[in-house]
Amino acid sequence: MFWVYILRCADGSYYTGHTDDLERRMGQHATGGFSGYTASRRPLVLVWSQECFTREEALAAERQVKGWSRKKKEAMISGDWDEVSRLAKSKSVHPSTGSG
């Protein structure tokens, strides 16, 4: 199994990642085992995770979520799928600026 997950960092930002061992990865993040984004933003809290069958599925989900707005991520974290859907539609619907 693989996982896609979101961490809330001490500065209030979100980090999205994927892994094949969520417990091990959380330990690595908690101890600063990565020199990247989360190392200087501890402590971290796991706020959302989802199991995936393949690494490709987890990576695709990670990339998708990383492209979302903060509001959309927070709606998903809270389980408000109506709001996730509304935010998805509001981004894709653009009023016409033409005259015809």
Rank of each mutant, 00 (worst) to 15 (best):
residue 56 E to D: 10
residue 19 T to C: 03
residue 60 A to D: 01
residue 49 S to L: 11
residue 30 A to F: 06
residue 48 W to K: 09
residue 14 Y to D: 00
residue 74 E to Y: 09
residue 11 D to P: 11
residue 46 L to F: 04
residue 41 R to T: 10
residue 28 Q to S: 14
residue 31 T to D: 15
residue 10 A to F: 11
residue 79 G to T: 03
residue 20 D to L: 10
residue 40 S to I: 12
residue 10 A to Q: 09
residue 58 A to C: 01
residue 75 A to C: 09
residue 65 V to T: 02
residue 50 Q to Y: 01
residue 47 V to F: 10
residue 50 Q to I: 08
residue 71 K to P: 05
residue 50 Q to V: 07
residue 78 S to H: 10
residue 27 G to L: 11
residue 39 A to W: 08
residue 29 H to M: 05
residue 22 L to R: 00
residue 42 R to A: 06
residue 62 E to F: 01
residue 71 K to N: 09
residue 40 S to C: 11
residue 15 Y to D: 00
residue 21 D to C: 07
residue 14 Y to A: 00
residue 54 T to V: 05
residue 65 V to P: 03
residue 8 R to Q: 12
residue 30 A to S: 03
residue 13 S to E: 15
residue 51 E to I: 00
residue 53 F to A: 12
residue 43 P to N: 04
residue 68 W to S: 00
residue 61 A to N: 11
residue 47 V to Q: 04
residue 38 T to D: 00
residue 26 M to E: 08
residue 68 W to C: 01
residue 64 Q to T: 04
residue 13 S to I: 07
residue 66 K to G: 01
residue 42 R to S: 06
residue 49 S to V: 11
residue 27 G to H: 09
residue 57 E to R: 06
residue 73 K to P: 02
residue 62 E to C: 00
residue 60 A to C: 14
residue 39 A to M: 13
residue 64 Q to E: 09
residue 76 M to Y: 10
residue 35 S to F: 13
residue 34 F to E: 15
residue 69 S to G: 08
residue 14 Y to L: 07
residue 61 A to D: 07
residue 9 C to R: 06
residue 81 W to N: 15
residue 20 D to R: 11
residue 41 R to L: 13
residue 73 K to I: 03
residue 21 D to V: 04
residue 12 G to Y: 08
residue 37 Y to H: 13
residue 45 V to Y: 15
residue 10 A to T: 07
residue 31 T to M: 15
residue 80 D to K: 14
residue 39 A to F: 07
residue 11 D to S: 07
residue 75 A to N: 02
residue 35 S to M: 13
residue 23 E to P: 07
residue 76 M to D: 08
residue 64 Q to L: 14
residue 48 W to G: 06
residue 10 A to S: 12
residue 51 E to K: 09
residue 71 K to A: 13
residue 16 T to S: 15
residue 70 R to F: 05
residue 41 R to Y: 15
residue 18 H to R: 05
residue 58 A to I: 00
residue 34 F to Q: 12
residue 69 S to K: 04
residue 72 K to G: 07
residue 16 T to R: 12
residue 36 G to E: 12
residue 68 W to R: 04
residue 52 C to G: 03
residue 73 K to L: 04
residue 19 T to H: 03
residue 67 G to N: 01
residue 20 D to Y: 09
residue 51 E to N: 14
residue 59 L to T: 01
residue 57 E to G: 09
residue 10 A to L: 15
residue 39 A to H: 15
residue 64 Q to S: 06
residue 58 A to T: 01
residue 31 T to H: 13
residue 65 V to R: 07
residue 43 P to K: 14
residue 38 T to I: 12
residue 19 T to M: 01
residue 23 E to D: 13
residue 66 K to A: 00
residue 46 L to G: 10
residue 78 S to R: 11
residue 31 T to E: 15
residue 59 L to C: 04
residue 62 E to S: 02
residue 70 R to V: 14
residue 77 I to M: 14
residue 32 G to T: 10
residue 50 Q to M: 04
residue 59 L to E: 03
residue 52 C to K: 03
residue 70 R to H: 06
residue 53 F to Y: 14
residue 76 M to N: 12
residue 36 G to K: 03
residue 57 E to Q: 11
